Simulated scan of single mutants.
Amino acid sequence: MILIDADACPVKTEITEVAIRRNIQAIFVAGSYLRVADHPLIRFFAAGDAFDAADDAIAEVARPGTVTITADILLAQRVIEKGGAALDPRGREFTPASIGDVVATRDLMHELRPGLEGQTGGQGGGPKPYAKADRANFKNALDRVLTRIARG
């Protein structure tokens, strides 16, 4: 099963294509309604508008054999702790060996960013624009992870 943190996911089409081609269920989870492909393998779950509702819903069902697509490092950490696999939308896989460093870097960068009125996290350039190569890298990474999981 593929679980998608869908609110700001730029690779919805690519996930849908891979899920259908590989005959794997994909569940798009978002805070409110999101249109998804009309296919029996593709589902949508509205988690509600509470803070981290979508993350909590995904973390609740993540387990070994699931793949979660998210740019949220803390959600990726929760998924990995439950034995699931996690990929970001550019195809970077978060692993038990790497997630600690990724979380620490995230926390450090959050602290270093000057914010408004003395608060952190208020300024930054954001990620680089999403390119065609990023889509290809993502699809290749998702296929690689799904193949590894299928082989056990």
Rank of each mutant, 00 (worst) to 15 (best):
G126L: 06
R43P: 02
E14D: 07
V29K: 02
G125H: 02
G91I: 08
P129C: 00
A53T: 01
I99K: 03
L3G: 05
R35N: 14
P129S: 06
G152T: 00
S98C: 05
A53V: 04
N23A: 11
R144C: 09
K82G: 08
G118P: 09
S98H: 10
H110R: 15
V11A: 12
K12I: 14
T70R: 03
P40I: 09
A54G: 05
G124C: 03
F51Y: 08
D5I: 04
N140F: 09
E111A: 15
A54R: 02
L3K: 00
F51M: 13
L3C: 04
V67N: 07
A136G: 11
F28V: 00
R135T: 07
V18K: 05
E117N: 13
G121M: 10
D55T: 00
E93G: 12
D5W: 04
A46G: 10
V29Q: 04
K128I: 00
Q25V: 10
D55A: 00
A133K: 09
R35C: 11
I27L: 07
V11C: 11
G122A: 08
A47F: 01
A19V: 03
A131W: 00
D88M: 13
Y130I: 03
A131Y: 00
R151L: 08
D38W: 13
I58T: 01
D107N: 08
Q123W: 08
Q77F: 03
R21I: 00
Q77I: 01
A57M: 04
R113V: 11
A104P: 00
Y130W: 02
G124Q: 03
Q119V: 14
V18P: 08
A131M: 04
D55E: 08
F138V: 12
V36M: 14
Q77N: 09
D52C: 14
R35P: 13
L41P: 03
F44R: 15
V145D: 15
L116H: 09
A136M: 13
D72L: 12
V61N: 01
G83R: 05
A53Q: 05
D107F: 07
G84P: 08
Q77T: 07
F44H: 15
L34D: 13
M109W: 13
T147D: 11
N23P: 02
A50Q: 12
A131R: 07
N137H: 15
E93R: 15
A26Q: 04
N23M: 08
A54L: 04
F138D: 06
F94R: 01
G122N: 11
